[in-house]
């Protein structure tokens, strides 16, 4: 078993940045960065702080900088790294709360600023009439890739534009905006437009593509941002193909034999046999 050195950037609230600290960890087959951190906390320093939850690349909590590259701790095996010294820092482009814990508030503020949900003009889409908003596989493919985002912030740490403009919306929120703009059920394009085309919006991206390189989920935020720009330019020129979100009525789903599905009714609770 090889001996590894985890070189970790420490930050303690109240005491500030206390520099790098080395921990010696014995590697084992399949060991991830996250496993190493657990080992350190259990055997060497109980005060070391980081974020994690699912330990399988799903929750998006464990983003950090490994040897100068933003990654997920649970998704990075130590054997995949060259050399026996592994440097760990909290995600760039965010304030640090403690040790490897970034303060992601700005990420979520920017995310909610782009209305990341279906915006519709009609009010009949609450499902109460029993019809769903149907969508063809081709329509789904327009945005499916961008739904894989786990909001880990790894792309935000990789973005060089964000490094020089902290108010830039950043890859994750811009991708979320495109994900909904491209959704055939959505009609929030105009509502999002001002924010996206604003001073710290999409036009500050110049395709360094570091976000797409870093994203652990294959989301390709850089692609989403360029497609977003195309749509806004076409809109500006007045030639964007705009199919208004289909009205609920026109989109009654069909059963497989071509008949309209029966309206959905809330099942009444079973009668109590004791009564």
């Amino acid at each position: 078993m090889a001996q590894l050195t985890f070189r970790i950037r420490r930050f303690q609230p109240g005491r500030g940045d206390t520099g790098w600290q080395d921990f010696s960890v014995e590697s084992s087959p399949g060991m991830t960065i996250l496993d190493g951190l657990h080992h350190i906390r259990e055997h060497q320093d109980g005060s070391l702080a980081w974020r994690h939850s699912c330990r399988m690349g799903v929750c998006g909590s464990c983003g950090l900088i490994v040897n100068g590259e933003p990654r997920l701790a649970c998704n990075t095996q130590v054997e995949s790294l060259t050399g026996s010294r592994i440097s760990l820092e909290p995600l760039w482009n965010f304030p640090v709360a403690k040790d490897l814990v970034p303060d992601l508030s700005s990420l979520f503020e920017k995310h909610s600023a782009v209305a990341p949900y279906l915006v519709r003009d009609d009010s009949e889409d609450d499902g109460s009439d029993g019809r769903e908003l149907a969508q063809s596989p081709a329509e789904l493919d327009q945005f499916l890739q961008f739904t894989s985002c786990i909001k880990c912030g790894v792309c935000m740490a990789a973005c060089p534009t964000l490094a020089s403009d902290p108010d830039f919306l950043g890859p994750m929120p811009l991708t979320a905006a495109y994900r909904y703009n491209a959704d055939s059920r959505d009609s929030g394009f105009d509502a999002r437009k001002t924010k996206l085309a604003g001073r710290h919006g999409m036009s500050h991206c110049h395709y360094a593509a570091e976000c797409s390189r870093a994203c652990p989920k294959g989301v390709d935020p850089a692609r989403a941002i360029q497609l977003l720009k195309r749509d806004l330019v076409l809109d500006l020129l007045g030639v964007r193909r705009r199919e208004p979100a289909p009205p609920v009525d026109g989109r009654a789903p069909r059963t497989r034999d071509g008949l309209q599905a029966p309206p959905f009714t809330v099942p009444s609770p079973p009668e109590n046999p004791d009564e």
Partner: peptide, 8 residues
């Protein structure tokens, strides 16, 4: 209680 130190 946080520190913005990595941007710039």
């Amino acid at each position: 209680n946080t520190q913005r130190r990595t941007v710039g």
